[in-house]
Design a protein around this nucleic acid. Structure first.
Lengths: 335, 335
DNA sequence: TTGTAAGCGTTATCAT
DNA sequence: ATGATAACGCTTACAA
């Protein structure tokens, strides 16, 4: 079975009885073409089923009309039931669709993957790069920015590079959460912190520390990596080190979920004995036992906003160095 | 700030003192180049930081080295905490990375989105197309296949098109689940079925029907769309219509999760009064109250297998029309 | 307003 | 084994 040759501009031009240039103008929406000719060209395009060859176009325009979305690949987090990454993917996809650009997804977890991402993006195979999550002080965003390649990150880059980013108001959200606990009479408030090589982990811990300290309370901290497994381990640690705790703020809903179960297994009632608050408001949060009080933020909106900023940057517009999205405390039954 | 021009083959050739053709050979790993010359070329490549222009290459090779992964866009399912789609994305990304191809993600939910996907894929902007989920009798996979464009679907296409697909053994998995219920003495076994315009919804219902009928038991069915919300509604219906039910098989873990909560609210104990089994084994399943017995399958593996098949197809190899992945009953506490 | 023609950066076909 | 050279399909000055 031979595959039918796809028609080229040339073929359409012949059919419509005009030059390639004219067809190109019509296809690209130039207004300087006489109406009847436009009509004829459009008919020829339809009859032949012509679709522009993107590679050829890209070769001459120097644009690729595609942007890369780079994600870390750690199995535990990216594609567990954490909704953060899927949400960002969705937001980016929506916004790019509206801009008629392609979304190229790249996993950068392994060293090989990271190198591949670096080659691909520095090679200008995309018009811009979105980083969905940064671990440690990855220099890649800064490198790309210096090369003049449009970049936007989710969260402030830890290496101090001046790369535009979009983030949520982590500190504000945590502050509200911890205050809520204090206002409800809790005094021994612990925190299951996130990984300290990620900006979200750092900021959420900072918010907790500042708030409990300002209230004259002790800092009771254990560390996790945002996953349920790590949350369970951290909760055990806290229970052992501070058996008298009466509240826990977890830096992710996943860790909060695990804390809920660990507390139950330890015979503590939530919220009677121990109040629990999470962060993210993933869908599961409304279905935990008891339903989880948490700090909500719009995941999909983060993806959309990042993409909007990137498109502006790629269009040569100036953008703010950072955009901070709001958070909101959703009070359910766990606190 | 002017962007540095990226070096071309020409530049590398000049630097290494050879022709463009030779550089091309070295870059593409041809063995017919003398070792010292290869050496010189490689040095020039490194010094200049040369990266091939994919558009130019694609233009002449007629390959794009990228494949599209098409997903439906319904907000409720694709990016809720259902891990199915993220899992497929991950599997595809891993496999494509190994093959050095790009993953282009496309959402096909809206009519406009669907049309866009059609234009893009039929326009041969990708070497192949992966469909992550089909709703109703979407003719697109069949259309692409007829155009000679490599296509692989997740699940058998409902329009009867002869398109290769990879799926899990839905019927087998459900059969084992329902038998487990029967063996444990359950006799009033209901099912919360999935959407009947999706092959997974249809097959899981078929498996349930056949098994209860073979055991001489009644069919008690309510319908959902795989989401928690729909699961809760379906559970309510079942409780009203069949207050004496003693077991529920839900076609997705999300619906099973909602059923668990609905049953508790209705004062039924799980598994004492009512046993519950789900399908998918998402991470949350191990954390529900009580932990959910469910039918497990390897989501990421589905994505990988689909991609492997597609790559074979794109390489001109013949492949089986379908690959069925195994399922396994994971017994926890809910049944 | 329309057409001509010169690239864009590769790969591939021939010679050599 | 290496080098010219002709495509690949499109956009875009520049002419007409």
């Amino acid at each position: 079975m031979t595959t039918a040759q796809r028609p080229t501009l040339e073929a359409v031009a012949r059919r419509a009885g005009v030059s390639r240039a004219t067809v190109s103008r019509v296809v690209n929406g130039s207004t300087t073409v006489a109406e009847p000719i436009q009509e004829a060209v459009r008919r020829a395009v339809a009859e032949l089923g012509y679709v522009p060859n993107l590679a050829a176009r890209s070769l001459v325009t120097q644009r690729t009309d595609s942007v890369a979305l780079v994600m870390p690949e750690e199995a535990t987090r990216v594609f567990s039931d954490d909704q953060v990454f899927p949400g960002i993917i969705r937001g980016a996809a929506q916004e790019l669709e509206a801009a008629d650009k392609q979304l190229v997804l790249m996993l950068a977890g392994s060293a090989a993957g990271h190198e591949r991402v670096e080659r691909y993006t520095t090679g200008r195979h995309v018009d811009g790069v979105l980083f969905a999550s940064l671990h440690g002080a990855d220099p890649l965003p800064g490198t790309l920015a210096r090369l003049g390649i449009p970049v936007v990150c989710a969260g402030r880059p830890l290496d101090g590079a001046r790369v535009p980013y979009v983030d949520v108001d982590n500190v504000g959200g945590v502050t509200r959460a911890v205050r809520h606990l204090i206002e409800n009479g809790r005094r021994r408030i612990a925190s299951i912190a996130g990984p300290q090589d990620m900006i979200a982990g750092i900021e959420r811990l900072t918010g907790y520390r500042e708030t409990v300290t300002a209230a004259g309370l002790a800092e009771l901290v254990a560390y996790g990596d945002f996953t349920r497994e790590s949350g369970a381990a951290a909760m055990h640690q806290l229970l052992t080190a501070h058996p008298d705790l009466d509240a826990v703020f977890a830096a992710s809903d996943l860790m909060a979920h695990a804390a809920l179960r660990t507390l139950r297994e330890a015979g503590r009632r939530v919220p009677d004995d121990v109040a629990v608050i999470g962060f993210d408001d993933i869908e599961t949060a409304a279905y935990t036992e008891p339903p989880l009080t948490t700090v909500r933020w719009e995941i999909v909106e983060l993806g959309r906003e990042m993409t909007r900023q990137l498109l502006r940057l790629a269009a040569g517009e100036a953008i703010e160095e950072s955009v901070i999205l709001p958070t909101e405390l959703v009070v359910r039954e766990s606190a």
